[in-house]
């Protein structure tokens, strides 16, 4: 889309996202970050979630992000250099093109975001086992983190427009903000980076293994609310996962307040939410 904006387009004055957290002198930031969407073996649902920021998407593009690559939405055929690459889908290792593309993405992008369950954890492609015409050899699909180093995870199937928006705004602050904004962005993104470090496997079982088995579950119900296939119910206050429904998207564990809970960020929820929504007004 960058390519198509007439050269004479006046740059709109950029409004500084209001920082309530530590309101410091805001230095106006004029430069946008560059970002793109890389589509591997996914379903485009992640991309639709990006678009589902509706009018907010237009504001993001006006002020903060130049969307430089996106086969679905734009006319760009080859992966360019960019600040943030949002990768949707897992990698079919029997498909040369996909493997090249993910490696190229790592070389070209400063920050690689695994967008959605397929990129983070394989999601439904964890069930793939090949054997289907016309490419029966397409059998092995890996989350991108098994092939390249990934910086940030956004789990879920589909991921939510609001998570995508938050990460975009935070990436912008991290790369272009003043020192306070950078510090906030880093704090916000840290757990999502830790999720990326934690590994490439997810399942409803994580609630048992990492929460209940660890003596951490307190029965809030967040996991059940988060599950996109209604695989989780609560029986006497604790989660029960129907493993024959679970698609391995990783939303439940990431949503659980006992997977991660960063007081330094969440205690400031009001200021941060105001800042993010303010930035997109």
């Amino acid at each position: 889309m960058k390519q198509q904006i007439p050269a004479a387009t006046p740059q709109k004055p950029v409004e500084q996202p209001k920082e309530e957290v530590k309101s410091k002198e805001a230095k106006p930031v004029a430069e946008k970050i560059t970002a793109g969407h890389i589509h591997l073996s996914g379903c485009t649902g992640c991309e639709v979630a990006i678009a589902d920021n509706y009018a907010g998407l237009l504001t993001l593009l006006d002020r903060y992000v130049d969307w430089v690559y996106d086969l679905t939405l734009a006319d760009v055929r080859h992966v360019p250099k960019m600040d943030v690459a949002m990768v949707e889908g897992s990698v079919c290792i029997q498909d040369k093109l996909s493997v090249e593309e993910i490696k190229e993405t790592r070389e070209k992008a400063k920050i690689v975001v695994a967008l959605g369950g397929c990129a983070c954890y394989g999601n439904i492609t964890r069930f793939a086992r090949g054997g289907q015409t016309n490419q029966p050899q397409h059998e092995s699909f890996l989350p991108i983190g098994d092939i390249i180093k990934v910086d940030v995870y956004i789990p879920g199937c589909a991921p939510t427009p609001q998570m995508i928006r938050n990460v975009c705004v935070m990436a912008y602050l991290l790369l272009k903000g003043n020192p306070d904004q950078q510090a906030l962005a880093k704090k916000y993104l840290t757990p999502l980076m830790q999720l990326a470090e934690r590994g490439t496997e997810a399942c409803g079982c994580d609630l048992m293994i990492e929460v209940v088995n660890q003596g951490l579950c307190m029965g809030c119900g967040s996991c059940a609310a988060a599950c996109p296939v209604r695989a989780i119910t609560h029986e006497y206050g604790k989660p029960n996962v129907n493993r024959e429904m679970c698609i391995k998207c990783g939303a439940c564990y990431a949503q659980c307040p006992r997977s991660f809970f960063n007081f330094d960020v969440i205690n400031e929820y009001q200021g941060i939410l105001d800042a993010i929504t303010g930035a997109l007004q």
Binding site: C46, E47, R129, Q132
Partner: peptide
């Protein structure tokens, strides 16, 4: 790449398969 939804569906439950099938396309 062919994720092979029809093949991976075999012997899964009739409740789960449509949820997987949904994920061939997000539009």
């Amino acid at each position: 790449p062919v994720r092979g939804i029809e093949k991976l569906a075999i012997n899964k439950t009739m409740d789960q398969v449509p949820k997987i099938a949904s994920r061939v396309c997000g539009i």
